[in-house]
Write a protein that binds this DNA or RNA. Structure first.
Lengths: 194, 194
DNA sequence: GCCCTAAATTGAACCGCGTTCAATGAGAGG
DNA sequence: CCTCTCATTGAACGCGGTTCAATTTAGGGC
């Protein structure tokens, strides 16, 4: 067991992830620079590539954390003792607020570049399923007689739609559009689906 | 009048835009390289910066064209003699098909990086208004007694929602999800809004 | 036609950045 | 104490956008 070395390697990896997370959260994905990372972590430039494959992998690691936080946030802000439609609206609002409060980290979830062929990592799909499952509950209560297949499609459509509304709202957030308007938009459109 | 020089300058600018458009369309925004551009246009590297400000401006120019094509495409594929709800679905499908058939160019519309403070260019807002106007028509027919303000919000929400559905569908297009499913999703969700 | 000036054109050089790699160092096992 | 393996180092590479001093080109006045 070369344990000591492997432990330090893992520790550096952890340090790098934390620094990367701070950078992404504070200044966005494009502010992630290998030389800054090395300086802040107190290691040499090349050491990064021993602890972590490359910067993209580092971003992936940060994204995994962000995704988990997102899931927890939405769950936490969705009361279980209210009507299905209210739960759906609450989830959409939670998604919106998380995105607004964690704008840079949230954007990094989607701004990361994937090679056109390779699939998304497993944890990404898992977390996504989790979010879908959250929506699926109240949605099936609202539509007891819908086929499972259509329900799956509807779930996906609902998530994507909310995502689009939040995305375009935050994109031009500086150009007017107060957050309350976005919440109203979400409320307005979601309640029409019941 | 230093006309001759200015004419050639404008010609080079036009050439560059066309080459850039071809590159973006065929291989995506990230394949736009100044040195390739110079080689293909038959000019020196530095000459590019006399004809256009920088590569970002070039992308903006290509995006303007893409946006116009998008508007024309949606208009063309939206029959005016059908029910309002059918018009809305037709527009969404047209948006989806244009995005699918012009994936790289369409992505470049949103992938371009803007400084966080500066607003979107005027033509962008104008074209956007045009798309919104297209939606507003049938939507107000469907909701004659809605307040103008809520109608505006609904219009925006509808566009953003469709955009989100198309965006996430195309993102993982390689990972399954046939285009017909996306069309069904759009149909399913839009018809619930009537 | 001839010069003069202002503009365009050129491409080498600059800079920033991700990534690599030969050289060096350090730690575990014998 | 030696050795072998693995981590660490930071200079160097490759790439790509942008700049700029030098050069060429072209219009306008005589």
């Amino acid at each position: 067991m070369a344990t000591a070395a492997q432990t330090r390697r893992a520790a550096l990896r952890e340090t790098l992830i934390e620094i990367a997370e701070r950078h992404i959260t504070q200044n966005g994905l494009s502010s992630l620079r290998a030389r800054d990372l090395a300086k802040e972590a107190g290691c040499a430039l090349g050491a990064i590539y021993n602890a972590v494959g490359d910067l993209n992998e580092l971003t992936l690691e940060v994204n995994a954390r962000t995704f988990k936080r997102l899931g927890a946030y939405v769950t936490q802000h969705t009361p279980s003792d209210i009507a299905p439609i209210d739960r759906i609206v609450a989830m959409a609002w939670a998604y919106h607020h998380f995105a607004a409060e964690n704008h840079n980290a949230w954007r990094a979830l989607f701004d990361i570049e994937r090679a056109p062929d390779e699939a998304a990592p497993a944890w990404y799909l898992t977390e996504m399923q989790g979010l879908f499952a959250l929506i699926h509950g109240p949605l099936s209560e609202l539509n007891p007689d819908q086929s499972p297949e259509e329900l799956a499609l509807l779930t996906r459509a609902l998530f994507s739609g909310v995502h689009g509304i939040v995305l375009l709202s935050l994109d031009q957030a500086s150009a007017g559009l107060p957050p309350e308007e976005t919440d109203r938009m979400l409320d307005l459109i979601l309640r029409r689906l019941s």
